[in-house]
Simulated scan of single mutants.
Amino acid sequence: MDAVWKIAVGAAVGLLVVWLALIAALLLAGRRYERPGLGEMLRLLPDLLRLLKRLAGDKSLPGGVRVRLWLLLAYLAVPIDLIPDFIPVIGYADDAIIVALALRSVARRAGVQALGRHWPGSSAGLGAVLRAAGIRD
Rank of each mutant, 00 (worst) to 15 (best):
P62H: 13
G63A: 12
V17I: 12
Y33V: 06
L103A: 12
S105K: 03
V9I: 09
V78D: 13
D94G: 11
Y33C: 07
S123G: 06
Q113K: 13
A11K: 05
V13C: 00
E40K: 00
R31N: 10
D95A: 11
G39M: 02
L76R: 15
L42S: 11
G64A: 12
W119T: 15
L26A: 14
L51A: 04
L44D: 09
V17E: 04
L16Y: 01
A3R: 09
D137Y: 00
P120G: 10
L44E: 08
R68Y: 01
L51V: 01
L28M: 13
A93E: 03
I98K: 10
D94C: 08
R109G: 05
G91S: 08
A96W: 01
G134P: 10
L26E: 15
G134A: 09
L20K: 01
A128F: 02
A93F: 02
G63K: 04
A96H: 03
L82I: 14
P36Y: 01
A107E: 11
G121E: 09
R104M: 13
I83E: 04
L103F: 05
G91A: 09
R31K: 14
M41C: 11
L61R: 10
Q113S: 14
G116S: 14
A132I: 02
I135S: 06
A24D: 13
P88D: 05
V65P: 13
L52Y: 06
L55H: 09
Y33P: 04
R131G: 09
P62C: 13
S105Q: 00
A110L: 05
L52Q: 15
K53Y: 09
A8T: 12
G57D: 12
L22W: 02
G63V: 05
R50M: 10
A114F: 01
L82S: 11
V18P: 02
A77L: 14
H118C: 01
L48H: 04
A100C: 03
A128Q: 04
L126M: 05
A3L: 07
W119R: 10
L26F: 06
R32F: 11
V89T: 14
R108W: 08
L55T: 07
D95C: 03
L130I: 04
W119D: 14
P36A: 12
A114V: 02
I87L: 14
V78Y: 13
L103V: 10
A93Y: 00
D2L: 10
I7M: 07
G63N: 04
F86D: 09
Q113M: 09
D58R: 08
A100V: 07
R66C: 04
W5D: 13
R104V: 11
L130D: 03
P84A: 08
V4E: 15
A21P: 02
R136E: 13
L26S: 11
D81N: 15
G91Y: 03
W19I: 00
K6V: 00
V13G: 00
A133S: 15
A77C: 12
P120V: 03
